[in-house]
Amino acid sequence: MTTFKLIINGKTLKGEITIEAVDAAEKEKIFKQYANDNGIDGEWTYDDATKTFTVTE
């Protein structure tokens, strides 16, 4: 398992979430669903070196 981080830079929601997953593709799906469930629609980036997804509205 690898630890992945999501950084949220939303208009109404900001924060960080850290979760373990098998791979980045699995985690991306979970993070995007979390963002969608919380009304966050923005630009996504991924840094493989730090295993960090960022979504910015």
Rank of each mutant, 00 (worst) to 15 (best):
L13M: 12
T52K: 01
A24I: 13
T52N: 01
I8K: 00
W44N: 01
E57F: 15
D47R: 00
G42V: 10
K11D: 04
N9Q: 10
E57P: 11
F53N: 02
T56G: 05
K32M: 12
Q33Y: 04
V55C: 11
I17S: 01
N38V: 12
F4N: 06
N36Y: 14
D41C: 14
T54Y: 12
I8D: 00
T12Q: 08
T45W: 06
K27H: 13
N9T: 06
E57R: 10
Y34A: 03
V22H: 10
T18D: 04
F53W: 07
Y34M: 09
T52L: 01
L6F: 14
G39N: 10
V55G: 01
K27I: 15
Y34W: 15
E26M: 09
A35C: 13
Y34Q: 00
E20T: 10
T50H: 03
I30V: 06
M1Y: 13
N38R: 13
E57W: 14
K5R: 07
G42W: 15
G15C: 15
E57T: 14
D47I: 02
T3N: 05
T45K: 04
D47N: 06
K14A: 10
K27P: 15
T54V: 05
Q33M: 09
A35S: 03
V22G: 07
T50W: 02
V55T: 02
D47Q: 00
T54H: 09
T2V: 12
W44C: 05
K51R: 11
E57Q: 12
E20P: 07
I8E: 00
V55R: 05
E43D: 11
T50A: 03
T45R: 03
M1I: 10
F4P: 08
L6K: 00
A21W: 13
F53V: 04
T18L: 12
G10H: 03
K51S: 04
I17K: 00
G42C: 13
E16L: 11
E20K: 12
F4C: 15
A24W: 14
Q33G: 04
N9Y: 12
Y34K: 00
D41V: 13
V55W: 12
V22Q: 10
I7P: 00
E26I: 08
N36T: 11
G15N: 07
K5E: 07
T52V: 03
D37G: 04
E43Q: 10
K14G: 04
E28I: 14
I19G: 08
G42Y: 11
T3R: 11
E43K: 09
N36F: 13
L6I: 15
T45M: 06
K51G: 05
E43H: 09
L13R: 05
E16M: 11
E43V: 12
E28S: 06
K29L: 11
T50Q: 02
G39D: 05
G15K: 13
K29D: 09
T3A: 05
K14L: 13
T56C: 09
K27Q: 15
I8Y: 07
D23V: 04
K29S: 10
E26W: 11
K5S: 05
G39Y: 07
Y46W: 06
F4Y: 14
N36C: 13
D23E: 06
K14E: 08
D47E: 03
A24P: 08
E20Y: 14
D47F: 01
D23A: 07
T18S: 07
K32W: 11
D37E: 12
E28Y: 14
T2P: 11
D23C: 12
I40L: 07
I17A: 01
T3F: 13
D23S: 12
I30A: 06
G42T: 02
I19L: 10
A24G: 13
K29Y: 11
E28P: 02
N9E: 04
A35E: 01
L13N: 06
T2C: 15
I40A: 02
G10D: 02
K51H: 11
E43F: 10
A24L: 12
I19E: 02
F31S: 00
G10T: 14
K27A: 15
E26K: 04
Y34S: 01
I30Q: 04
V22N: 10
W44D: 00
E26V: 10
M1R: 12
K27S: 15
D37W: 09
D48T: 04
K14H: 12
A49W: 05
E28M: 14
I17V: 09
A35K: 02
T2K: 05
Y34P: 00
N38D: 02
D41N: 12
A25L: 10
F4H: 09
A35W: 08
T2F: 14
N36H: 14
I7E: 02
D48R: 03
N36P: 02
I17Q: 01
A35T: 05
D47V: 03
F31Y: 03
I17H: 03
N38G: 04
K51I: 09
G15I: 15
N36S: 13
N38T: 06
G15S: 12
T50D: 03
L13I: 13
N9G: 03
W44R: 00
L6N: 01
A49M: 08
A24C: 15
E57V: 14
N36Q: 14
W44I: 04
N36G: 07
A25K: 08
Y46T: 01
I7R: 03
K11T: 09
L13Y: 14
K11A: 07
I7V: 09
G39T: 02
K5I: 13
E20V: 13
A21T: 11
W44A: 01
I8W: 09
A49V: 09
M1W: 10
T52I: 05
I19M: 06
D48I: 07
A25Y: 08
T45V: 06
T3S: 10
K29W: 10
M1V: 11
W44P: 00
T56I: 09
T56M: 05
N9H: 06
T50R: 03
I40F: 11
A25F: 12
T45Y: 08
K14P: 07
T2E: 08
F31I: 12
E26C: 12
K5H: 13
K27L: 15
D41W: 14
Y46N: 00
A21E: 05
T3P: 03
K29M: 10
E57H: 10
G10W: 11
K11W: 11
K5T: 13
I19F: 15
Q33F: 06
